[in-house]
Amino acid sequence: MTVFQWIVVPLATLLAVYQVRIAFRQRARLVPGMVWASVFGAIAVCVGRPGIPNQLAHWLGIGRGADLVLYSTAVLLILALRWSYARYRYLEQVHTALVRELALERARFGGQVARDAQPQARKSA
């Protein structure tokens, strides 16, 4: 084993085990915990046994294991980016709705003269 393997394999294995523990301790974390455990497990396997991704790549017709990892990472990053953007847009809309509601609630009518005859805001419409 190379130095890189000595560092990455135990670290990825520990993280995978940690994620499994979290997944089973907190029910809400079951799915994300298992996803992350799979990711760290796959990293440990691919780095510890480079032959496995090579064989898988060959079987898929890609050629090298490194290319398989690269392509998979690119696809996953695009998916993650799309998910993050959707999440960002959702949060932006929630935050906008909140600020808007406050503004609507606190609407004021200005003007020194007009203040006395201030129209009532109709909120029912």
Partner: peptide, 9 residues
């Protein structure tokens, strides 16, 4: 200062 509705974000 004007007779307008004012909303503030």
């Amino acid at each position: 200062r004007f007779p307008v509705w004012v909303l503030r974000h």
